[in-house]
């Protein structure tokens, strides 16, 4: 059961990730990223990270990507990406896949050289994560809340229209 789930959802994640980078319409790319998030959340649950899986669904698929959708809708048809051949000279287009393939081959080589024990499931329930979060990780936790506050200020300051500007 777990094996079937793992291979089908990692396949789905990779397929939708390819859609994210290849589809010309930003809205479709974004919606396939939502699907990628869903399949990644399934993988997280298989690894026992229940809390992170749900946070991923709520924070990413729910909030962040909807924010993206708002901005894309705001820009309407002007946001459409030009076709690949218009963006680059075909000569330069060779380098991106080659660099990506070299990186992937290197990573696969290193990973396959590792001793690979089967994945042990750790139960990352809300209780376990919360206990650790409010004891050992209390300082980083508070710092991230401060970071979020600062980024809210920054976003408001950036998006606000200056006085006198139409």
């Amino acid at each position: 059961m777990g094996v079937v789930l793992f291979y089908s959802f990692s396949g789905l994640a990779i397929l939708t990730a390819l859609f994210v980078i290849l589809l010309p319409e930003p809205t479709r790319a974004l919606l396939s990223l939502v699907l990628t998030m869903f399949s990644l959340s399934v993988l997280y649950v298989l690894l026992g990270a229940h809390f992170v899986a749900m946070a991923n669904l709520i924070v990413y698929a729910g909030a962040v990507l909807v924010l993206f959708l708002f901005v894309i809708m705001l820009q309407g048809i002007g946001a459409k990406d030009s076709s690949v051949l218009q963006r680059f000279h075909p000569l330069f287009l060779f380098f991106a896949p080659i660099a990506a393939m070299v990186l992937l081959a290197g990573m696969t080589y290193i990973i396959s050289g590792l001793i690979s024990p089967p994945a042990r499931e750790v139960s990352g329930t809300v209780e376990a994560v919360g206990k650790l979060l409010f004891t050992d990780y209390i300082l980083p936790f508070e710092l991230t809340s401060f970071l979020l506050l600062v980024s809210v200020f920054a976003a408001v300051a950036l998006a606000k229209k200056e006085k006198g500007e139409a």
Binding site: I14, M107, P118
Partner: peptide, 26 residues
């Protein structure tokens, strides 16, 4: 059970796809 390296390889493939997208998107 699924060996852990398969998770790492899936993660590597996704990272590579993201990097590729970073290079070809405008």
């Amino acid at each position: 059970t699924i060996p852990l390296s398969h998770y790492l390889i899936v993660s590597g493939i996704l990272f590579t796809i993201g990097l590729f997208g970073l290079m070809i998107r405008r």
